[in-house]
Design a protein around this nucleic acid. Structure first.
Lengths: 143, 143
DNA sequence: TATTGTTATACTCTATAACTATA
DNA sequence: TATAGTTATAGAGTATAACAATA
């Protein structure tokens, strides 16, 4: 009576299905702002905390510094992000949003966060909290 | 006292973190079998149900038929999968595992499923069941 | 006409590894 | 020596759209 035998595997399979589905609809939604999911993540991170290094950003985004370099290249060439040498350690590039980047973030970040919350609102508020708690605990244990 | 205000958004962010982390370790694990995650999914699907069309597989994997075509090209050239024309509707390619494909599936699928279950076993059995139920319900509501 | 699969194109993301500049 | 960033390379996945064969 305790349910299925391999709930972990099933949880993983459904996690893949849900994240794939939301990824696709997210990509459609972000097209309005001419952003990819990875670029949105950069914008969302920098709008919370500017002035971090590329290395620090790569650790937050869980990708390599080489990828961040290319990502920032594309966003810098579009005038959304700027690199500034750290005054005391010139190996570091500190990342800032330009005015255009801030303006885009002000439009795109709240709108896309609302979009994401709408996807999750098929679950009740209590279910969303339970899901959040389970995934947060799982995330912490995966380090 | 009901907890955070935007549990849906937080649940989504942690779902991304967890699935990214497990994806990366999965990719490492699948290297033993010289498989990518997408190729593993094909193998796992066909080892449960052979003889489906490329179109049907693309719907199960949630990708376009063009992608399935390239994916099957690579797996066919490695001798893992074969295409057979449907006898009554020659537009359809029915997909089958070759003997080599079956042998690889017999090794890789159980091993990788165990690997995935180990990742989830940081949660208790009851938590895994809760997580599975929440994600299954969310998946169904996203159609 | 509609459907299945193929092909061509293009872009993003990803990893790896060698390289430069700086500390 | 060690660290941050850059560059080059390679590969996978994705989408789109035009095309051929078949129904």
């Amino acid at each position: 009576m305790s349910g299925v035998r391999n709930p972990g595997l099933l949880a993983w399979l459904y996690m893949m299905r849900v994240s794939n589905k939301i990824h696709r609809t997210s990509a459609d939604h972000l097209e309005k702002y001419d952003l990819t999911a990875a670029q949105f993540d950069v914008l969302a991170h920098l709008s919370v905390k500017e002035g971090i290094s590329q290395q620090a950003l790569s650790e937050r985004l869980l990708v390599t510094k080489g990828n961040v370099c290319g990502l920032i290249d594309r966003m810098e060439s579009r005038g959304l992000v700027s690199r500034c040498s750290h005054p005391e350690d010139r190996r570091l590039n500190l990342l800032y949003l330009t005015e255009a980047g801030k303006a885009l973030a002000a439009r795109a970040v709240p709108a896309h966060e609302e979009f994401l919350e709408r996807q999750m609102q098929h679950l009740s508020a209590q279910e969303q909290r339970n899901l959040y708690t389970l995934l947060r605990d799982l995330d912490r244990s995966l380090d």
